[in-house]
Write a protein that binds this DNA or RNA. Structure first.
Lengths: 133, 133
DNA sequence: CTCCTTGTCTATTGACATGATAGACAAATT
DNA sequence: AATTTGTCTATCATGTCAATAGACAAGGAG
């Protein structure tokens, strides 16, 4: 499991959008100023969110970004997976990538790590943006 | 939290030593062959373990490596911390590094991540080498 | 219709960590 | 003395993270 500034900035920005709610589009610069995020960097992260269908955009003045789905339907797990990859501590215990890691043959290690993965995934899949706003 | 091949190779090697038990020193090459670990790379990892007091060494023929402490007293948590750093998902929820991360001001996020950290740390601190041999 | 505002795209960068390798050196056993 | 093994220093390729720059496209305001 990885949790880089990609996920962190993204979650911050999404929380910002969730707080702003239905009151129209939010300019990227407002978000960046509020949380000290480099503008050009957040643009890249937002382009991933847009392609993932999480946000709607509008250009021109009065343009900006807005949540495309209800905050209650966006889980922390999917955002982190989208930005930083699988939640498993190591590849060999990821549900979707059964590629070999050095530990792959140590069944007890795999069991331990799998258990931790299940906890992390379970917890983060329960939580949505509304829980952290 | 990070779990790279450093921790993975190290855990594998320690498990190997634990299985060999009191039956004398184990050559690094035997370990490498058994688990497909690059020899020169494992040497580096072993030097960290030695400086940490986890293994004893002996040179010359019939030399090699041996656990310096009972396997039951070596937790998975300390090995992973030694090789890959803190167990917390992100710096801002690490017990020892309260440095600022972007999420630092979002109390609910910190609570969630702290909870996950506590679970991971608790689990890995309970488990020792004998549990995974 | 034109200007201004804002998002979109392509690319490039520096810093750092990971994973690995090579070779000289030191110590202990036979 | 010869052989075996660990120890040390150094270097390397690759990839990711984090950030920045600049040209371009689209929409709204006047």
């Amino acid at each position: 499991m990885k949790l880089t500034t990609k996920s962190e900035y993204t979650l911050l920005a999404l929380i910002h959008l969730a707080r702003h709610g239905e009151r129209g589009y939010v300019k990227i610069e407002d978000i960046c100023e509020a949380h000290s995020i480099p503008k050009k960097y957040l643009e890249i992260l937002f382009s991933v969110l847009r392609q993932g269908g999480y946000i709607n955009t509008r250009r021109g003045s009065a343009g900006g970004y807005m949540l495309a789905r209800p905050a209650a339907e966006i889980t922390l797990a999917e955002i982190i997976r989208l930005m930083d990859g699988a939640l498993a501590p190591t590849e060999s215990v990821s549900k979707y990538f059964f590629s070999d890691t050095p530990l792959a043959k140590e069944k007890k290690m795999i069991a331990v790590l799998g258990e931790i993965r299940d906890y992390i995934a379970g917890r983060l899949e329960q939580l949505t943006l509304v829980d952290v706003v």
